[in-house]
């Protein structure tokens, strides 16, 4: 004898029947939505002004306009925005990734080297490269050398399930194994503004001010950030950037973010990251050891 799903529905209905209705938040949502729209318009206006400055010859490239595909990159099925291999920054990134992947176990240093080298190659040139920063209580961040504002960036990869089931979203050996075995892993950018869900993966980029992990519409109290979330079967990858300093908005457009993430360099970095996060020693807040298998291998 065992409770059925109908019993479950009944029990949920009974509990929800005791739930007081929520207060009306439609008005607050409209106000917050209008504020967000105003911010976007302001940001776009600023971006347009920056583009005019570029045309005037101030020496900054708003986006990386490298020429199209080299043949060896074009054969990569994942390449949507291939670039030529001649750029020494790309060569450095590819070598850092190759070194990490060749090692029996990817160390934190090898992961950060690959992360930094890949960011050096992918970020628009106006950011002038990256340096590693460590803040108390925080994972290592890559901070851009220049840019207005400078950016902090991080990358997190994990699974949804596993022994540490009380930490959904940041742990899970079984989840990583499952995604490695089953997922049709691919990049699929559908919408980098509002996060329309793709067939297999959610690929999102949203921008917000964050204060202590919560959204805020008060720019004076928070740091502006942008994030991209990739969710597959029991797998997630989160790339975030935050403006360094208050009252500054991340000067990285959704198109630029999409271009970076569509690049095969980023996919290779994600492969390194999947192995690294899977192999790293057991830590209370992160994943445990698993047998890593990258979906594309």
């Amino acid at each position: 004898m065992s409770p059925t799903t109908e019993d479950l529905r009944t029990a949920i209905a009974d509990e929800l029947a005791t739930l007081e209705p929520m207060t009306d938040v439609v008005g607050r949502a409209r106000v917050a939505g209008r504020r967000r729209l105003r911010r976007r318009r302001t940001f776009r206006a600023g971006a347009s002004a920056a583009a005019v400055a570029v045309v005037a010859g101030l020496g900054y490239a708003a986006v990386d306009n490298d020429p199209p595909a080299a043949p060896d990159v074009a054969t990569d099925a994942t390449a949507r925005s291939p670039r030529p291999p001649a750029d020494p920054r790309r060569t450095t990134a590819e070598e850092a990734v190759a070194r990490a992947m060749a090692s029996p176990r990817i160390t934190e240093q090898a992961w950060l080297d690959a992360f930094a080298a890949t960011w050096e190659a992918l970020l628009p040139r106006r950011f002038g490269g990256v340096t590693l920063t460590r803040e108390p209580g925080s994972a290592p961040l890559l901070r851009t050398v220049s840019g207005a504002p400078r950016l902090d960036s991080w990358l997190t990869i994990g699974g949804y399930e596993g022994p540490r089931a009380d930490q959904p979203g940041t742990s899970g050996c079984a989840g990583l194994r499952q995604v490695a075995a089953e997922a049709d892993f691919r990049w699929d950018v559908t919408d980098c503004v509002d996060g329309t869900i793709a067939g297999e993966l959610d690929y999102l980029a949203d921008r917000e001010f964050t204060v202590g992990g919560n959204q805020s519409d008060n720019p004076g109290r928070g740091r502006h950030g942008a994030g991209v979330l990739v969710v597959g079967d029991n797998f997630f990858l989160e790339w975030g950037v935050q403006a360094v300093g208050p009252d500054a908005e991340v000067g990285l457009t959704a198109d630029e973010m999409a271009t970076m993430l569509e690049d095969p360099l980023f996919l290779h970095l994600a492969e390194v990251g999947t192995r690294y996060f899977a192999e790293r020693p057991d830590e209370p807040s992160i994943v445990r050891q698993v047998d890593p298998t990258w979906p594309l291998s």
């Binding site: 739930l19 929520m22 439609v26 409209r30 939505g33 209008r34 967000r36």
Partner: peptide, 18 residues
Amino acid sequence: RAAAEDLVQTTLTAMYVA
């Protein structure tokens, strides 16, 4: 309850924008 109310407001805000 409080988290659920926040979630609804966040959801509706995102929908208003889009």
